[in-house]
Simulated scan of single mutants.
Amino acid sequence: MRWRPIPLAMTALVAIVASGSLIGVRTAARAANGSVAVGAAGGPRYGLSTVGLSYPFAAAIAKGFGDAAARAGATAVILDAKGDVQKQANDIDDLIAQRVAGIAVMPLDSVVAQGWVQRAGRAGVPIAAVAALVGDPRTRRVEDVYPGLVALASQDEVAAGRSAGQLAARLLPKDRPARIAIIEGAAGFPEVEQRARGFRQALDAAGAHYAIVAAQPGNWTSEGGEAACQNILAAQPGIDLFYNEADDMVVGCARAVRAAGSKARLIGVGGSKLAIASIKAGAVDGTVCFKPEALGALAFQALASPGGDRFRTYPIPAVTRATVQQCVGQW
């Protein structure tokens, strides 16, 4: 995306959306050129800078944040970075200039976000991270919350990978080394490395005999997942299992597997509504259950009621067709 400067006036409270509708959140944000207010008019205002409301997972986080603000009699100012790091930096600066009561950020770049935390701190505006850590994800553990943050509300992405790996270990053939392909997210997202690392850790701990023979980005989308799996199957039709780092990608990958007549097993991450339906239909073998609306609520609560644990999370079990009823899709 080519960035162009966006005037400060864009961040005004230009739309009020009825709480409880993901479609409403996304539609209003698009109509408002990336800005939407949710909640009670006149209450304290809290900002959420999201990676992009076109991503259903991010939209569900925004819904949880806005719902929590409405319950507290506050207003949530939700800004859509549209996948652009420079726009997200401008959005953070705008929220600081507006003197909101607190800022939650779903960072596009965890390393760049360190500067945003420092700027908010100098301005005396509390800031929390949601869904992704701040700091170098290769060296910082998720529970080691970056200095200056009120809190980090996130699932442990390495633990999510481990849950997927534990499930994969049960699905792999036992009579020979298994051939695994990883469908990654988009470059630059810390979750890409973290989910892959946890996946390998679990396979190794289970004593699985395997080789990761291919890895391609699916860019978090169904279309990207389908294309990546098509490419891999064309070159290596004997794949035993595809580990998709997000559920949108596993849904697309399932189409490619069916079209190729492959018997590869399919695992995703995220607990999306489409993935859960695919598991029930037998098209996907399993996923790791995330609750993005809960993350949004946890981030708001950390800003509105600081104190207590700085790392805030929830259980993230892997589910299969036999246990999928335990996962209610939130996105």
Rank of each mutant, 00 (worst) to 15 (best):
G307N: 04
A62S: 12
I239K: 00
P292G: 10
R162T: 02
A129H: 06
V250F: 01
Y243I: 00
R258Q: 15
V150Q: 05
F57A: 11
A28I: 06
G115Q: 11
V142A: 09
A74H: 01
A97Y: 10
K63W: 06
N244S: 12
K263N: 08
A69Q: 03
Q326C: 15
I96S: 14
E293H: 08
A15C: 15
D136H: 14
I61A: 06
D309V: 12
T11M: 05
D80G: 06
C253T: 02
A206E: 03
R312S: 04
R310L: 14
A264M: 01
V105A: 08
G225Q: 01
A318R: 00
Y146K: 06
Q325L: 13
P7K: 09
A187E: 15
A28Q: 11
Y46S: 05
V251L: 09
G52V: 00
E143S: 15
T320F: 07
F290L: 07
G261F: 09
G207S: 06
R140L: 11
T50E: 05
S222F: 02
I276E: 04
A123Y: 13
Q201L: 10
G121H: 14
A120V: 11
P315K: 05
I239C: 02
A29P: 09
K291D: 10
N90G: 14
T320D: 05
G121N: 13
L203F: 01
G270L: 03
R4C: 15
A70R: 09
V324Y: 02
T221R: 02
G198V: 02
D156N: 12
K291G: 10
K280N: 11
C229F: 01
S163T: 08
Q301L: 09
G282Y: 03
R140S: 10
C289H: 01
D175I: 03
G115M: 13
G43I: 06
V14F: 13
D93A: 15
Q114T: 14
K280W: 08
A89I: 13
L172W: 00
L133K: 04
A256M: 09
D93E: 15
E293N: 08
L133C: 10
A196L: 09
R179T: 00
K263D: 07
T139R: 07
F57W: 07
L203M: 05
D309I: 11
V284D: 01
G238P: 02
L8C: 15
W116G: 13
R265W: 00
